[in-house]
């Protein structure tokens, strides 16, 4: 059996972004422009602020899109800001986002990329 090798990636962060349904596409595009590789998208139900706003709550869709992006330390701030601006999170009701540190990330890393790094 051939040798199996796990490469532990370090300096990895995850940006999680919970958005009102339908905003995901724009945000993802902006994140990619800022260097993000891609995202895992899931759909979820939100609760909380909607119930505390009375009738105005109907303007906030219960359906949420959750984007999870894995980025490097260097990228994190840039992508974070890009998402904030593209999603217009400074207006009410759009969504929330946060960054968390990840340890021991592992995945397939193409040989070409490894060679380029070691040079």
């Amino acid at each position: 059996m051939a040798d199996r090798h796990i490469i532990y990636l370090t300096n990895v962060k995850m940006i999680t972004c919970v958005l009102q349904n339908g905003l995901g596409e724009d945000v993802l595009e902006a994140a990619k422009n800022a260097g993000a590789q891609g995202a895992t998208i899931s759909y979820a139900q939100g609760t909380g602020i909607r119930d505390r706003m009375g009738l105005l709550g109907v303007t906030i869709d219960e359906q949420k899109e959750v984007l999870r992006l894995i980025v490097s330390d260097d990228q994190a701030d840039r992508v974070f800001e890009a998402i904030y601006l593209a999603g217009r999170l400074d207006t009410p009701g759009k969504g929330i986002m946060y960054v968390s540190n990840l340890e021991n990330v592992a995945t397939h890393i193409p040989q070409g990329v490894l060679d380029a790094v070691s040079e």
Binding site: G48, R52, M53, G54, L56, T59, I60, T91, P92, G93
Partner: peptide, 17 residues
């Protein structure tokens, strides 16, 4: 958490889209 009282600007920002 208390009920939120949205300001006029917030109401606009919510209603417009």
């Amino acid at each position: 958490p208390e009920r939120i009282n949205a300001s006029l600007r917030d109401v606009y920002a919510l209603l417009a889209p």
